[in-house]
């Protein structure tokens, strides 16, 4: 067994083990921290598969941003956190079955699609920034650009749903309520005439 293979197996074991801990631990903050370990181990796996760019993106975005966001959200909504018995749902076994089935199918797909694929380490540059960038900006340039539209739409939507132009001032609001029925009557007259 080569060093790479041993490393890969070890990293894989760490990833799977910490992923199990993510879903079984009772402390929600611990779950978030175990997620860091899972994602870090996955990044290591990507690195061993010569996908160095994906590996660093994994570290920067998932470990660096997503988990931190998650912790912030926990801090702002749930703090102080303690073991939560309500976090256990009676559907857990069902979720486990679905997860196992999904994993089974994904493994089958990968084995069917890529068993026997060999990366020639002397010549290959598969997951480097150069090749990834080349693919994204040549073959996939149109879907890539359209995806930015999706992000913009999500941004506009988030602003629409959260931005308040009307401050909550009780006195003004009451005054507004007083004048409202009169306006409504006006409107109805105008629209029916």
């Amino acid at each position: 067994m080569s060093t790479v293979r041993v490393l890969f197996v070890l990293l894989g074991a760490v990833a799977v083990g910490s992923a199990l801990l993510v879903v079984t631990t009772r402390q929600i903050v611990h779950a978030a921290l175990w997620l860091v370990v899972t994602l870090g181990a996955l990044a290591g796996c990507f690195l061993l598969l010569t996908a160095e760019f994906v590996a660093w993106v994994q570290v920067l975005i998932y470990v660096g941003a997503v988990v931190v966001l998650l912790l912030f959200a926990l801090m702002l909504t749930r703090a102080p956190t303690r073991p939560d018995p309500a976090a256990r749902t009676p559907n857990a076994w069902f979720a486990a079955v679905v997860a196992a089935a999904v994993a089974g199918v994904l493994v089958t797909t990968l084995v069917a699609g890529f068993s026997g694929a060999v990366i020639d380490l002397d010549r290959a540059e598969i997951g480097g920034a150069r090749v990834t960038g080349g693919a994204v900006f040549s073959t996939w340039v149109l879907p890539f650009e359209v995806l930015s539209v999706l992000l913009l739409a999500a941004l506009v939507g988030a602003i629409v749903l959260s931005r308040r132009d009307v401050p909550n001032r009780p006195r003004d609001a009451e005054a507004a309520r007083d004048t409202e029925p009169a306006r409504d009557a006006d409107d109805r007259e105008r629209s029916s005439s």
Binding site: A117, D120, I126, F137, S138
Partner: peptide
Amino acid sequence: MTSILLAQEFKSPT
């Protein structure tokens, strides 16, 4: 064997 993409010069898309 799946074909492997090799490093190449960037060609701008049409």
